[in-house]
């Protein structure tokens, strides 16, 4: 069986390599992909949308439908992970473990206490993942706000530099995942609950589709941001730039929430109580 697949893979790879003789050379400015539609994007983007980053303009304006449904795919993947993995039954075994914050002593409770000894003195922690490294925890605590600030910058500055909703959303999501890795899942859940991630991923897609529907309501085509000009008191070219920004906000929100949702479900096998 392995021999057959090896022969198949080698044969297919050989066929592909023989076919590369017909492919354009590396870095050829006259390659077929670079001479049909892309010159128009490069020449017209600035005058039509006033967005210097052509990638952002093509992503959110010229190919707006594509990106809207890509965002919907990301949202659907989050929902699929939730539906596949989420379970309500609690983890078996002794599950109440607390750390005395001042000394680092770990206390285990066999039965559910009548009153949660949480607060400033004791912190409830996970039993299979007990991270307690002063340096890692505090470095991450200091770093995460700056990571999130950078994520917001990447979303908001996507018009003028590499960036945009997808990239910024992933950075924001990674900051929450870093919190879950360096502290524990429970701390991350305290910052961004399950309901919040679900709601935010849906709201992100809704913002995108809503901006499109608003253009429809203003009497233009779906996702034709020029129609939003009168609402925001700007000329049609700047309306397209602003429309791209609103859409990117929606994308960033949806991507961030979905990344966190997928991570939480995968890391805790769907129980969302504890895990990596």
């Amino acid at each position: 069986m392995k021999l057959i697949s090896l022969a198949l893979v080698v044969l297919l790879g050989g066929l592909f390599m023989a076919a590369t003789a017909d492919f354009p050379d590396w870095g050829d400015p006259a390659s077929p992909a670079s001479v049909h539609v892309s010159p128009r994007y490069i020449e017209k983007t600035m005058e039509e949308t006033s967005v210097p980053n052509i990638v952002t303009a093509v992503l959110a304006d010229y190919r707006g439908y594509d990106t809207m449904f890509e965002t919907a795919v990301v949202f659907t993947a989050g929902v699929a992970c939730f539906l596949l993995l989420r379970r309500r039954d609690p983890r078996p075994g002794p599950e109440r473990i607390y750390r005395h914050q001042a000394t680092g002593v770990i206390v285990e409770m066999r039965h559910k206490p009548a009153k949660e000894p949480a607060g400033e003195v004791f912190a409830r922690i996970d039993d299979d993942w007990v991270p307690h490294d002063l340096i890692i925890m505090n470095v991450c605590r200091l770093l995460i706000p700056f990571i999130q600030l950078f994520g917001l910058y990447v979303i908001a500055h996507g018009h003028h530099s590499p960036g945009g909703g997808f990239q910024g959303g992933v950075i924001l999501g990674a900051s929450i995942i870093l919190l879950a890795l360096s502290w524990d899942l429970r701390t991350a859940m305290g910052r961004l609950s399950e309901a919040a991630t679900g709601l935010m991923s849906a709201v992100g897609v809704f913002i995108y589709a809503g901006v499109g529907a608003m253009c429809l309501a203003m009497g233009s085509n779906f996702l034709d941001y020029e129609a939003l000009g009168p609402l925001m008191f700007v000329d049609p070219v700047h309306a397209r730039s602003l429309g791209i920004f609103f859409v990117e906000l929606g994308v960033g929100l949806a991507v961030m929430a979905t990344m966190v949702l997928i991570y939480k479900n995968l890391a805790s096998e769907g129980r969302l109580d504890q895990g990596l």
């Binding site: 490069i42 052509i54 990638v55 990106t67």
Partner: peptide, 10 residues
């Protein structure tokens, strides 16, 4: 060419 970058970004 910006188009491959757009497609691969998503």
């Amino acid at each position: 060419n910006p188009l491959p970058h757009v497609l691969m970004l998503t």
